[in-house]
Nucleic acid binder design. Structure first.
Lengths: 196, 196
DNA sequence: CTGCAAATCTGCAGAGACTGCAAGTTCGGC
DNA sequence: GCCGAACTTGCAGTCTCTGCAGATTTGCAG
């Protein structure tokens, strides 16, 4: 892990920009936040903002991308013999446990639901994670990444996760996300043939 | 069906704008096409363009949205007793048969793959269709749209269709899309447990 | 066919998003 | 310490996108 000062600094400003964008958007609504404000809050020039992100929307969703990457890494660390769907179940259980992060996650998720411009970006983040997941599944099952199996599994799993989190946010939110995840995974494993 | 002159005219300019946007983007690359050019090609003012679409990207992907809506309508017309996955299989077979439309479809699909800005919009189109599909599945299985089953099924199916078309485009394209669709549906129906 | 109300189109002005470029600043290695 | 590479910044300029107000067109009733 060669993390020179340079790289660390870059990561720090990237995170600062993402956090500032999210915070400001939650507070004032995305439309009423300018790149200039975001840059100022992160203590860089507006021009630098565009060296990191190509749009406001991308910055707001940056945390999601990181979360997805995190999910991928955790999946890669699961025991090799474990069925893919079970690995996903386990990883989601781990991640749901992160209470402190959950706060900002919920804020962001609700923001996305209320700002139409963010929806496409959010989906792009999911699909980026999907590509990573495809590679992991391919390696783990000893299949080629060109094979349909890893790709379809990854896509279906990510889609199911999306549905699970959406439903969880829509309902009282007091319910257990892990339980919802369990249900959607059962549906997938059951071949989508019968209802719960 | 009350299609007054007004509505028909609106639909016509909407399609003209979408087609112009797609055509120009394929010819010159999306970045080198301005809204002004698109509007001119469709014979309306630039301001009017924004009365129909909120961005260039949305216009380019408009045909996709229509196609997704079409798929939804065809699904709704399938016999009620048919299993959902089988209905999807049948509908895709029908739609693949439309040779004339396929040309522009392939052009658009290839464009999306080469223009990063279009990816999020494309995904948004898929998800919009997903909502429609959810409603259809809910009605057909007699379940509430709030239920997880219709939502997960719709999401998984759309994700699988996305993978199928992507793979089909990536490979020589001479293969049969219907065959790829068959494979991905088999994977879903099999609970994602084994490889083909 | 005529006139009215609503829907639509258009031009204009203006705020912001975003990019290429060239000049400064900082970091990493020798 | 010093040089090259990487990063930041300001600036100029183009394009996107929006609100508004005044035409223009359409649907409908009389």
């Amino acid at each position: 892990m060669t993390t020179g000062l340079r790289e660390r600094k870059k990561l720090r400003t990237r995170r600062a920009l993402g956090a500032a964008a999210l915070e400001l958007a939650v507070a004032h609504g995305l439309a009423d936040v300018t790149v200039e404000q975001i840059a100022e809050a992160a203590d860089v020039s507006p021009r630098t903002f565009f060296n990191y992100f190509s749009s406001k929307e991308e910055a707001v969703v940056a945390a999601d991308v990181e979360r997805a990457r995190d999910m991928g890494e955790r999946l890669a660390e699961r025991p090799a013999g474990e069925p893919v769907l079970e690995s996903v179940r386990a990883v989601m259980r781990e991640m749901v446990g992160d209470a402190p992060r959950s706060r900002e996650w919920i804020a962001q998720a609700r923001l996305v639901r209320s700002e139409p411009t963010l929806v496409p970006q959010q989906l792009a983040a999911y699909v980026a994670a999907e590509a990573h997941l495809t590679a992991i599944i391919a390696e783990r099952t000893g299949r080629s990444p060109q094979d349909l199996y890893p790709a379809v599994t990854a896509a279906a799993v990510m889609a199911a996760m999306r549905v699970a989190t959406t439903r969880w946010l829509e309902s009282d939110e007091h319910g257990d996300l892990a339980a919802v995840v369990d249900q959607v995974i059962d549906l997938l494993a059951g071949g989508l043939s019968r209802a719960p």
